[in-house]
Amino acid sequence: MRKPLYKVTFLNAGRVYELYAKHVAASSLWGFTEVSDLVFDARDGVVVDPTEERLRDEFGGTRVLHLPMQSIVRVEEVEKKGQSAIRDAATGETVVTPFPLPAKPR
């Protein structure tokens, strides 16, 4: 039997985060949801996803993430991992840009 994989979408500081985890449950802290065993893409190959890198930098050392229940938008049990994301909550646009934008000529 395969272990479940969850896509967790939550609000944090005006942004919508989409992370993947192997464990989601009610937390021992009242009003929180426990998210652990976060899943990140392997660092193989030349192409690097800047969003995945940013999420790994922010949450890579996290054993258990305790999210307030009111910040969780949804939890989905999925077949396989998709692309993680950080989006602006108001516009839905991706916050992390893949490449530096060139400066405007003066």
Rank of each mutant, 00 (worst) to 15 (best):
S28Q: 13
E18S: 10
T33R: 10
R106A: 12
V78H: 05
S71W: 06
E79V: 14
R2F: 07
A13I: 07
V73L: 09
M1H: 07
E93A: 15
D88A: 01
E79T: 15
S71Y: 01
V75C: 00
Y6K: 04
G45Q: 07
P98C: 03
E58W: 13
V24Y: 00
F10Y: 15
K80V: 14
R87I: 02
V96C: 08
S27Y: 03
L19H: 02
V75M: 00
A103Q: 09
P100G: 02
V64W: 06
Q83K: 14
A90I: 05
L19V: 11
T33M: 08
R63A: 15
D57H: 05
D88C: 01
A25I: 06
G82V: 05
Y17A: 01
K7F: 03
P68T: 10
T62F: 04
T51P: 07
D57T: 04
V46H: 10
L38D: 05
A25E: 14
D44Q: 13
D44E: 15
P50Q: 04
E79H: 14
Y20P: 06
P50G: 03
E77V: 12
V47P: 06
P102N: 10
R54S: 09
S27T: 04
K7Y: 06
L29M: 13
Q70G: 05
V16D: 00
S27I: 04
P100W: 02
D37H: 12
R63G: 13
R54Y: 06
M1Y: 06
T97M: 03
W30M: 12
K22C: 07
M1I: 08
R74G: 11
D49C: 12
H66M: 11
Y17D: 01
D37W: 09
W30Q: 14
A85D: 06
K3D: 07
P100C: 01
Q70L: 09
V96Y: 08
S84Q: 14
E34S: 14
V48S: 08
V78F: 04
V96E: 13
K104S: 12
V78M: 04
V95T: 08
G31N: 00
L65Y: 05
I86E: 09
E76R: 15
G61R: 08
L101Y: 04
A42M: 07
R43D: 13
F40K: 08
E93V: 10
Y6G: 03
K80Y: 12
A25T: 13
K7M: 13
K7P: 05
L67V: 10
V73D: 05
E76N: 14
L101T: 11
F40Y: 12
L67Y: 05
K7H: 11
T9A: 14
V8W: 09
A21I: 03
F99I: 11
